[in-house]
Design a binder for these strands. Structure first.
Lengths: 213, 213, 213, 213
DNA sequence: AATGAATGAGTTTTCATTCAT
DNA sequence: AATGAATGAAAACTCATTCAT
């Protein structure tokens, strides 16, 4: 793991994991409500179920909490994404299914994703590249899927095109949560999925038709 | 004006405008660098060129500064958007031009837009609806354009479809600045514009072809 | 003055001087009682007669208080030393008078001097040379006096001898305050002065006799 | 033993002694570097080679560590002083040797002595008299030596004179370490010893001469 | 209108000490 | 006897806001 470590005074690895889980869980709830800056370390400790002193046995600074939270969210998203995208056969149709699955994940985790985007700026200089790397890995999951699908279906796509489509899928998923105040007034998740899938995959359909001619 | 007013102790309207302009200009620079929360009111006053006491003659709380900044950025974006979208003839081709113009505006104002998205959460409950309204107005500009274009070109689009396309255009423009750390490594603005326009307008092209048959 | 400056947010130089005087006065009282480390910044502010916020308008860190206190004590000691040593005629007899005056100063400022010695270690790396310099200047005042006296009385002393005597005078004065718990039980100030002067000046007397032969 | 006891939970006396030795050894190193107040109990435990929990089995409070350290340093100094001053014959000449030996001890233990002087203030009210007593015992060692010497050489000295000389010897030894930043720039240990011995013993020489006449 | 000194509640962080295992 | 996780009081320092000039 290239994860840059957050120092803990406590030695027991198992315990560190457990306490950090509690901590992240509490912090996420608070960050959802009031954001990182308006949340105090005391509140985090309380939400985690231990004292302020104990909190600082597992982190060095408040910024560490933010990093741990972002890290955890990414891991969470990625894990669920891996499940959502593990399809046996990769046709254009199953690509639609993958997108739908992804959108559903983003719907469920929308608040967590919101935290990441709004507080990312406050991450320390050292944490940022690590977090960005994780994001790229996720986009790559879509790229792999697209490449496979293009191959299976005999559609030729340049790498740049694959990158752009993957990116657009990724962004459109985030938008559902990120701009929910408007999107979720206009569409149901199903409608949104249908609509966006069409646009996202128009390119692929057209290529297929072209080639079929 | 539906703008919910920020109270100023000073009566002279002209002066209030002038001072707030100074204030916003200074604050934007600071927010770009360190975000709203890490910027102090003293720094804002200094960057604006007057004393902390004077600053508080023109606002009531630090949150007012954020609102004023967001408000100003929106006005700025909207004004430039109006110029960018004022096309005499509205063909599908000119729609591409409008998108290109919009993306260029977003490229130039990317840091300001970033501020808006990252600090929006910190806006007071009362300010949020006003700010959201402004955003909807901008999306509507695209909807109008699309509706007009569809009519001119004889393409039939449902309102939901128009809304979705408008929204996608809007979002993709923001993404250019928002996710610049990856997008701007992969593409030039021109490439990005070309690529996204294709996907954004595939739907329209297809309809046209269908109808043309 | 080579004094390395302590930053103050307040601009008004006069006010800064006044507030720092208050601050040092309060801090000295507290340091006398409980030492630097056991004194809190809040206590210092209170003793100075203003709020904790105001205290920090005139210093950057608690260490600054210690520096300011040491600086002030040195200035105080030096000023009084200058008065005490300003003798019109410099005979061996008047040298005794100078020593007596110096010991009296040290008797009066014994607690301040105690602070300096016990808290010197806590001074920041940058402050130390400045403080040491001041001390050397004081020793030099004795050296000048001794050199003059030796010349006037026709006694030849090497620079090393002058340095050693000056230093011993200086140290013995400090000891009166520094080891008061024992010295002041055994001797009155007058007895101590008489006793130490004899030892300190034996060397000079002897030389004079030798030369007189 | 007049030593006021530091409470230990552990019963095994031997073990208590052993652990406290470890503790003091570690603490002295730390106090040398950063002083008592800037050293944490955790650091002390670590330097001693056991856990914080164990540390508290052998002391009640952090202040106990300071007392134990001071106590140990005194014992150390005293022991070496006893060796240094155990001369078979006591002439004025051998007195010079005793002073030289003492100065050498102080040179070797200068950092320990520094700790004692700078942290003495932090000792608890109850510990102070005990520590002062130890110091007086050391001065008395010089007094005994001087008294013996005076007797052997047939020099008559009042008790006050003996006390003053003994005290001066003691202080000058400490000064070598205490004011090393200046003394050790000006003199080598040998020069300093020579110079100070002269001044310290001038009185005795003179008496001898006087009496010899 | 403008200034900037004063305020003190609130924040992060530390660390001596305890106590269950 | 030894451990080290847990505790929370207390510390230094910040900063939005006020108000006398």
């Amino acid at each position: 793991m290239t994860k840059h470590n957050v120092h803990a005074s406590v030695k027991d690895e198992k315990l560190v994991m457990k306490r950090r889980e509690q901590m992240v869980k509490g912090a996420v709830q608070l960050f959802k409500q009031k954001g990182f800056h308006r949340t105090t370390t005391r509140e985090i400790a309380k939400a985690a179920g231990f004292s302020i002193g104990t909190l600082y046995e597992y982190i060095r600074t408040k910024d560490d909490v933010l990093y741990l939270v972002c890290d955890s969210i990414y891991d969470n998203v990625k894990e669920r994404l891996e499940q959502a995208l593990s399809l046996d056969k990769v046709s254009v149709l199953s690509l639609r299914q993958a997108i739908a699955n992804y959108f559903k994940v983003m719907d469920e985790l929308q608040e967590e994703v919101l935290i990441m985007y709004q507080e990312a700026r406050s991450l320390s200089k050292e944490s940022i590249p690590y977090v960005l790397k994780k994001e790229l890995e996720m986009v790559q999951m879509f790229e792999d899927l697209l490449r496979q699908c293009a191959e299976d279906e005999g559609i030729s796509l340049t790498e740049k095109e694959i990158g752009a489509i993957a990116h657009n899928i990724f962004v459109q998923g985030q938008m559902w949560g990120f701009r929910r105040w408007v999107m979720q007034k206009l569409y149901t998740l199903e409608e949104y999925t249908e609509l966006q899938s069409n646009y996202l995959l128009y390119g692929m359909y057209m290529r297929k038709e072209e080639m079929g001619k």
